[in-house]
Every structure is written in C-alpha cells, then in structure tokens.
Amino acid sequence: MRWTRSLSELAPPALLVVVVGVVGSGTSPARQIDFQTALVSVAIVVALYVFVGNSGVLSFGQISFAAVGGYAAGVMTVPVELKVGTLPALAPLLRDHTIGNLPSLLLAAAFGAVYAALVALPLMRLSGLAAGIATFAVLEITHNILHEWTKIGPGAGVLSLVPETTGMLQATLGALVVMAIAYGYQRTRFGRQLRATREDPAAAQAVGISVHRQRLIAFTLSGGLSGFAGALYVHQIGSLTADQLYLELTFLSLAMLVVGGATSLWGAVVGALAVSGLDSFLGQAESGVNIGFTLNLPTGTRLVAVGAVMALVLVLRPTGITGGREFSLTWLRQLRRKERTA
C-alpha cells in the first residue's frame, strides 16, 4: 500500500518530465534549448521546494547555493590549458586541476550542501520575515564575493568555455534525480516532522519535534540539490556570470514554486514547466510564430505576460495551480465530478 501510493505520487511528475525530455529531443536544436532550460528550472525549483515547501519558511538564499555549485562545477571543468588565458588570477589549486562532468556535478552538490549547512546553523533559529531577510542577506553576500573575488572565479567577468554537457539526457536525468531525492525526503520521518512544524509549530514542538534541527536538515539537503541544479545550469549554457544566479532567478524560481503550488512536489514541477513553457512560447511569439495565424508580439511582451499570469494565478488561486497537493487520481475524479455538477 505504501509503495503503490509512493509510486502513484512520484510517477506522474516523473512521467511529465520524461515526456518533456522526449518531446524536446524531437525538436530542432534551437528549440531544444528551451526544453533543456525548462528541465533545469524543474531541478532548481524542486531543490527550492525541499526547504520552502516542506518548512513553510520563505528563503531567498537557495539561488546562492546554486551559484556556488554552478561556479564550482564551471571553474573545475574548464580545461587546464584554457584556464591560464580566461582565469589568470585563479588560485593554483583550482588552476592546475580539471575534473569530468559527473564529478563536477557531485562536487557542486557537496559544496552547496556544506555551504548551506554552515549558513543554516545560525540562521535556522529565525523564522518569519527575519528568516526571509537573513537568507536574502546570504544571497547578497554570495553574489558580492563571487562578483569580486578573482582567486576563485572570473569575478565581474564571464566564466566561459565550460563544457556544455547538459544535453537533453542530462537535463532530464538531473531533474529526475532531484525529484526522486526530494520525494524520498518528504516521505521520511524527517520530512514528515518538518511538514508538521509547517502546519503547527507549537503542536509539533509539543510532541517533541526540534524545529531547528528539522529545518537545518531540509535547508542542507535543499542547498545540496540547489548546488547540483546550479551545475546542470552552467553545463547547459556553457558560461556564467554572477548576475545570472542572483535576484531575478531567485524571484522567478519562487514565483514558479508558488504558481505551481508550494506545498507539493507535483506543484513545484508543474509550476516550473508551466512558467518556462509560457516564457519560451512568448519568446518565440516575439519573433513571430504560426499558431493557425501568425502571432507576432512586440519585444518585451513576454515579460509582461509572464508577470500578468503569475499575478493572476496568485490572486485567483493562491494555493497554486495544483492546490499544493500531490497528484492523485481521486483528486482528478473529484474535479470531474465537480465539473459535472457545476
């Protein structure tokens, strides 16, 4: 019974991601980039969900772990002979070594997790707005250091010539790995305890749950997955600047999560795919697209439409597209029944 439930909850979002990967593989190389971006967004948003969704505490810091992971994976995979030219000020340890694709992904996850754990130790004592602003301060500090310190990266410049190993396969598998870990976590007693603190902190503490410890675990796991997602990101684009993994992506990934439904994995996946899908469709429409008639929107419409849709979903359906529930057939049936009676 437990296993069938797990399967019925994890399989639909996994299937959706696989379908996106397979459909994407059949398109032109230029279109494939949109699909890969959507899949990497899934990884980033699900990593964010592990903490924000399960704990109910807003964090603006998760993208900084993605940035740390992205930089670690990027700097370490640029071939040694190219680093001398592009990253002259790099510390010797980083300059003289290069690692492969898979080790770089694992390294990024480790960096993200360790950094997140260090940050979480003091910060997870906070909650509410103070926690939000404190994690925001982490984002600012990380961005500032990555932007200025040329011993560990390109500083204000562009980290370029990173091997573009995140193709459709790696993007799909990467998203699936992150989802599987996120789902596995939320089914453990740690995950359940954290969700209990989200629903009622006082009651959870009364039955002996340590809010601090549970948030610490989730924050660290989320940091590790964010680092991994950041590595997928840099390997997909092949270059990175400090501004790419900063404010805009922080807001966008939070918006994707809330639009999908912040309290379920299904919601995180749906939100990431829906917003990325809309974004790339409108991006195409700005350069003219044929959908029965030729749609040609002025440049900049894309952002307006994405913003309007996000605001509309939040106002009309504050629990997100999925209502913050995991996928279930009974839910579909109920929905159908409601439609029939309505």
């Binding site: 807001f251 939070l254 913003g307 504050p318």
Partner: peptide, 20 residues
C-alpha cells in the same frame, strides 16, 4: 509568503510594462 510573492509578481509586472 503568498502575499509577498504576489507583490513580487506585481512588481515584476509593473517593471516589464515600464520596460515595454
């Protein structure tokens, strides 16, 4: 959290309109 993210969305929307 929902209210804050909603105001993000509004802020993003107004910025994009201005840019457009």
């Amino acid at each position: 959290a929902v209210m804050l993210v909603a105001t993000f969305a509004v802020s993003f929307l107004l910025q994009s309109i201005a840019l457009l």
